[in-house]
Simulated scan of single mutants.
Amino acid sequence: MNIIERGVEAVFPAAEYQARQARVRQALVARGLDAAIFTGPENIFWLTSQQTPGYYTFQCLILPVAGEPIFLLRELELTNFLRNSFVTAFETYGDGVAPAGLLLAALDRLGLSRKRIAIEKGGWFLPISFYESLVEALPERPDDATGIVEQMRRVKSPGELAAIERAVAQSDAGMRAGLAAIRPGATENDIVAAMMQAAIAGGAEYMGMEPLVSSGPRSGVPHATWRRRRLEAGDAVFLEMSGCSDRYHSGLMRTAWLGEPPTLARDLERVVLAALEAAIGVAGPGRSCAEVHHAAQTVIDAAGMTDRYRKRSGYSLGVSFAPDWGEWQVMSLFDGVDVELEPGMCFHIPITLREWGAFTVGISESIVIAEGGCRQLGGTIPRGIHVIDCE
Rank of each mutant, 00 (worst) to 15 (best):
G40C: 15
F58L: 09
L134S: 06
T380N: 03
H223W: 12
A236Q: 02
A204E: 06
K121W: 07
L72W: 01
G203Q: 08
R354S: 12
A66Y: 13
T92I: 04
A19E: 04
P343A: 01
S49H: 03
F359M: 02
E132G: 09
T306A: 14
C374S: 10
V168Y: 05
E160F: 04
E210A: 15
L179T: 02
I37T: 03
S219G: 00
E42W: 05
R247I: 11
W124Q: 12
D144L: 06
V292P: 02
A89T: 12
G32H: 03
F45R: 02
F130Q: 06
I119M: 08
P158E: 03
P222T: 05
L268T: 06
S85F: 10
R227H: 15
W46C: 04
V97Q: 13
G344D: 13
D144T: 07
P142N: 08
L268Y: 07
G336Y: 13
A204L: 00
G372S: 05
F58V: 05
G178F: 08
V221F: 09
G243F: 00
Y315W: 14
I351M: 15
Y131A: 06
S313N: 10
V155P: 08
R166N: 14
T146H: 00
E120Y: 10
P262Y: 06
P217L: 11
I3Q: 15
A256H: 03
R166A: 13
Y56L: 15
A278Q: 03
L102W: 13
I44C: 04
P13S: 01
A162H: 08
G159L: 03
Q297Y: 09
R20Q: 03
L61N: 04
G111D: 02
D144F: 08
F125I: 14
L78C: 09
S85I: 06
D235C: 02
V221E: 07
P139I: 02
L126A: 10
E150L: 15
